[in-house]
Design a protein around this nucleic acid. Structure first.
Lengths: 228, 228
DNA sequence: ATATATTTGTGTTGGTTTGACACGCTAAGG
DNA sequence: CCTTAGCGTGTCAAACCAACACAAATATAT
């Protein structure tokens, strides 16, 4: 029990978790077991504890939901409409996360039937103001991906350039020219060409690449500006 | 008095208020009258009431501090370090505001001696984590000014192109070429050339201009993308 | 074995945008 | 009337961007 001189809003974090698989870009949702909005899909999230930062709260929730550590996570926006939670005043700090669906299978999330991945064009009706939060997250991702190399957070360690291009097309919502895309991206010097090639698929085998974080940091220090 | 099952952090808003005068870009600070950090300069701000949104809280604080309405105001980031307030757990949602120092004299703020404008290169030591908040605000402004025409919020209704250019130079922290700047900015078609000219100063009188919000909105709908 | 389907990888060109750069014009002030 | 201060303007070379098609390497089907 805690007592204060003035009433305080409750504080939660909600996470928009993006993942990529062969069907495209997806978002992780959880089915609510309790009122309000019982049975509705919602963003994973929960209350902030008084002894943790918001980042810690978001990471904790994500660990609890997905079993993952080392996730790319950024604060998105703080939502504060007075009636956004019908029970009482709840202010929510939204985060968005990018995870490599390819590497780690997301555990609790996928085999429990109360959590699932949804394609961004097939998201069901959401609880609270979560549709709005998701919208803001998509816009942020779309904006950010153009001037920060965060797309790699969604791809496996080693990837084909065609995967990278498809990812960008998904996020930006438009098609890109293959030759121009390759030319431009390679010219940055932030991805390494590996000798390895992907085999077992029809078509000419693709050379694999890897994001070179070290080279990127070095370029950043020299005032390099990544763009598109 | 309010009682809750679990302890809750307190919630505040803090505002980074930018203004422009003939000495350059400035930020509004308030001298604290109470502990902690008594006597130190700090960002204006205060506690969020339980029946208002964060935007409303920020606007209310700004009205109380500066007497201004119709201010450009945007949420910046939510700061949550556990020890950021030595008294108790306080989470602060930071906003930044741009105001036309030229038009409206800021009342309570300027004649009270417990509030003052500081040049960005001469900001005193600040209370709490406000130095960090200010830093984030500067970065945001610097980033945002390049792809959204928010600089006008700092200028008078009618302005000279040289003022606009100086503003951009201040925010971006580098010099710009006069001819290229004019060419580019005028090519967007979002500022109107007025017939009026500024008089009374030495040198050839400058033609005045005005931001054309209507034209800007129209261009936006057509997918226009402002940049630099 | 051969043919077919699939996916990768590669260059050029014309148009557009950017960045560098210098001087005459018009007013105020002495 | 002369000086000083600030405004307003155009060109050119270099860099960048968008559009465009076909051969190479593999898997699969027949």
């Amino acid at each position: 029990m805690a007592t204060y001189e003035y009433p305080r809003p409750a504080l939660t974090v909600d996470c928009v978790v993006f993942g990529l698989d062969d069907e495209g870009l997806k978002v992780l949702l959880i089915r609510r077991g309790l009122a309000p909005f019982k049975g509705r899909w919602a963003l994973p999230g929960g209350f902030v504890r008084v002894e943790e930062t918001l980042d810690e709260a978001a990471l904790r929730e994500l660990r609890e939901e997905t079993g993952l550590k080392k996730i790319f996570l950024e604060q998105l926006y703080t939502f504060s409409a007075v009636k956004r939670d019908p029970r009482e005043r709840v202010i929510s700090v939204a985060y968005y996360a990018l995870i490599k669906l390819s590497d780690h299978r997301v555990q609790a999330a996928t085999d429990a039937d109360d959590a699932a991945w949804f394609r961004l064009d097939a998201v069901p009706e959401l609880a609270f103001d979560h549709a709005e939060i998701l919208e803001v997250a998509r816009d942020r991702l779309k904006g950010k991906v153009r001037y920060q190399p965060i797309g790699f957070e969604l791809l496996p360690e080693k990837f084909k350039l065609s995967q990278l291009q498809e990812l960008y097309e998904q996020i930006l919502g438009r098609e890109l020219d293959k030759r121009n895309f390759r030319k431009k991206f390679l010219s940055f010097g932030i991805i390494q060409e590996l000798e390895e090639r992907e085999q077992g698929l029809p078509g000419r085998p693709a050379r694999l690449h890897r994001f070179d974080a070290k080279a990127y940091r070095k370029l950043l220090e020299q005032g390099f500006h990544f763009e598109l």
